[in-house]
């Protein structure tokens, strides 16, 4: 058929479907493809298959410009490199001088830190312990740590985390120890208001995140937001550990004492690793028994431990 197709007379013979029919066919095909491609994702395989040779051709088309660019870069580089080299050399000199200063400072910091650590260790040796068990009883705020008497954990030692007091060791097993949290109903901590030094006793309320200050007179100068730290009175707690923050102060003239509610600062029921303060601070000489009975406040706060 090829040798006839140019001759005008053969136009009158059948050459397959007319141009209009062909146009309709291909337009419909295109629209179908458009619809399928826009609505569904059936054609991705065909597209990716066709894309492989086409992508090669496209790379071929972009090859001259890429080559041109690379050649340009190569020529520019010669002058640029010399400049850059000089600049970088100078920079490196400056920075090495700075680095020496930095190293001296680093050594200094390390030394200071060592000194600090030594000092801290001398006061309160501490060991890391992990919570392995929680008390199931919701009214008892107690946890079990994985360090016991084999690790020299003693009764009455204080358990803290990085932000404050968590509780106190109340029972020691060979390979574990029970800690009563400061939120436990039977637990008390002698505290001091950080702002003005006012002494008070913080009792656990049995709730998950509540501590109350009992036996504090209405006139006591305590405000919402005050931070309570351990007072160190009677020697069970070392002084100055953060305990709680006052969240609510209720002064009712009908009662002699104010109702003061606090939130513990430490993650009492959050952390998994806790620190046991191993060395109790040295107790000052014990006062006489009569005086001790005269100060029920202090007793209440510290005589938790048998």
């Amino acid at each position: 058929m090829a040798h006839m197709e140019h001759t005008r007379s053969f136009r009158f013979f059948n050459r397959g479907p007319s141009q209009g029919a062909r146009l309709v066919f291909f337009v419909l095909l295109s629209i179908l493809l458009l619809f399928i491609d826009a609505r569904f994702k059936y054609l991705e395989f065909a597209r990716s298959t066709l894309f492989i040779p086409i992508n090669a051709l496209q790379r071929l088309a972009t090859l001259p410009s890429v080559l041109w660019q690379e050649a340009g870069e190569y020529l520019v580089a010669q002058t640029q490199l010399v400049q850059d080299n000089a600049q970088l050399h100078q920079q490196s000199l400056e920075q090495s001088a700075r680095l020496q200063q930095l190293q001296i400072l680093q050594a200094e910091v390390a030394q200071l830190r060592n000194l600090l650590a030594v000092q801290q260790r001398a006061e309160y040796p501490m060991q890391l312990a992990e919570v392995i068990y929680l008390e199931r009883d919701i009214f008892k705020r107690k946890i079990l740590l994985n360090k016991g008497s084999t690790d020299n954990v003693l009764l009455g030692q204080i358990v803290i985390d990085d932000t404050g007091v968590v509780g106190q060791v109340t029972r020691v097993y060979p390979w574990g120890s029970e800690v009563t949290l400061i939120t436990d109903k039977d637990h008390a901590v002698p505290v001091q208001v950080l702002r003005n030094g006012l002494r008070a006793i913080a009792f656990g309320s049995g709730g998950a995140a509540d501590i109350t200050l009992r036996y504090t007179p209405i006139s006591a100068e305590i405000e919402v937001g005050d931070v309570l730290v351990t007072s160190g009175i009677d020697g069970t707690y070392p002084p100055g550990l953060p305990v709680a923050r006052v969240t609510q102060v209720e002064r009712n003239p009908a009662y002699p004492f104010a109702r003061i509610t606090c939130t513990p600062l430490a993650g009492v029921d959050k952390n998994r690793q806790l620190l046991i303060l191993a060395g109790l601070p040295k107790l000052p000489g014990r006062p006489d028994p009569e005086i001790e009975t005269n100060t029920p406040k202090a007793k209440k706060g510290t005589r938790k431990i048998p």
């Binding site: 146009l23 291909f26 337009v27 095909l29 295109s30 629209i31 179908l32 493809l33 458009l34 399928i36 491609d37 826009a38 054609l43 065909a46 597209r47």
Partner: peptide, 11 residues
């Protein structure tokens, strides 16, 4: 989209 150029070129 598949068919966009194809439609235009067919016309």
């Amino acid at each position: 989209l598949f068919g966009q150029h194809a439609l235009a070129y067919s016309v």
